[in-house]
Design a protein around this nucleic acid. Structure first.
Lengths: 228, 228
DNA sequence: GCAAAAGTGTTTATGTTACACCCATGT
DNA sequence: ACATGGGTGTAACATAAACACTTTTGC
């Protein structure tokens, strides 16, 4: 370690904004803090980065430790480091966005130490640290991203109806979408595979589809741009 | 400091990808390293974050120290922290993108300690650390961003011709653009102010324009989306 | 008068929006 | 039979793409 740098260093954490979709509204997974500072307050899952682990690894580890979630879609959002954002001293946090499918959702309260719970995006409790700021940035990113990359499929079950995905887009974009135009456009991309399976319930069964990642990626390579 | 965290911490740096435009191609400002490691190699300007400064402040400070640049457009890009990316040990770097106008360009070699120079994006020298990776991410961001936000104006002189801005878009997007369609669309946004000044030179003088940020922001507030 | 870049409209093709009714199921 | 959500096509409109010649200046 010939050139080791020896001045004081900020502490480094990761925080995850975990989005889920319950068929109706967009939701965020929060944990109740079990330690000071902000003991008992709701916060984004996250924690300190270990010296030998990469940043996404740290995010995944903290996510699993605090919420039981694993194998989720994860993407770096931004880094927050304003002095004073953490009362313990200088702490810089690399924020991630995670998207989880309903079948991956942990049952509320199924983790050991900390309590985790889903909150509808519109009814969030007060949050610790500068987490409201991070959450706002994550929402903005999601709203922007969903319009030109098919991240929505990371929030739906593997098999889903067209109405479900439309409801998801309406929830994220916050406006109603015309059913016929939405389906026309989405199906024209040709990366949705209609299945011979249907929902059952009190009404007319809806055809299930799955997202064909291969077809999507082939399109992307041919210089195609998703835009909805 | 009741809850100070006392485990080993990664070191934290900022690095800046500085883009410029010379009327022909996109360029990047690099510095020649004056210290180990990678002594003598070209690298992105950047350095360690002080304990009491915010991240953008640190980026601006390093930029001024190493290149003489100040008052530039600056935006966070992403954070790079893979173990092993710096031979001195664990160093996590928050990368920024800076856009500078030609009139702000430092004369090559006008800084004290380190040597700074512009390189065309297509003819970059070998770079220190994982800086090629950071640069690639910055280029991708710029290409994406220029299509829906008028960041291009940060790379042009305050007064510019329509041909100059077209050349900039062509350089960044890497493809030719139809002159008439480009002008029609750009002028239709109505945030370009035609001036009563013209270039002089060996050919027909071109009218100069300036970007009216107020008009642009008013449009954005009315729910308008730039798209080119 | 020639070389070089500036400037200017129209037509065609493509994509987007608006819009209303019938269908299949469970109760 | 009725309530509920699923499913389908067309016409009007708006936006994007293709395309060629004239103008002004310096040399």
């Amino acid at each position: 370690m010939a050139y080791q740098y020896e001045y004081p260093r900020p502490a480094l954490t990761v925080d995850c904004v975990v989005f889920g979709f319950d068929g109706d509204g967009l939701q965020v997974l929060l944990i109740r803090r079990g330690i000071e500072p902000f003991l008992g307050a709701w916060a984004l899952p996250g924690g300190f980065v270990h010296m030998d682990e990469d940043l996404p690894e740290a995010a995944r580890r903290e996510l699993e430790e605090e919420t039981g979630l694993h194998d989720v879609f994860l993407e770096q959002l931004a880094t927050f480091g304003t002095p004073g954002r953490d009362p313990r001293g200088r702490v810089v946090s690399v924020a991630y966005v995670a998207l989880v499918r309903p079948d991956q959702h942990p049952a509320t309260g199924d983790t050991d130490a900390s309590e985790a719970a889903w909150f509808p995006c519109g009814e969030l409790p007060g949050l610790a640290f500068d987490h409201p700021l991070i959450l706002e940035a994550a929402l903005e990113r999601l709203r922007g991203k969903i319009r030109y990359q098919p991240v929505g499929f990371e929030l739906l079950p593997k098999r889903f109806t067209l109405s479900q995905i439309q409801a998801l887009y309406e929830a994220i974009l916050g406006r109603p979408i015309d059913k016929r135009n939405f389906r026309k456009k989405l199906l024209a991309f040709d990366f949705l595979v209609p299945l011979e399976e249907f929902t059952s319930g009190s009404h007319r069964p809806a055809r299930l589809h799955r997202f064909d990642r291969r077809k999507y990626e082939a399109l992307v390579r041919r210089g195609f741009l998703f835009e909805l």
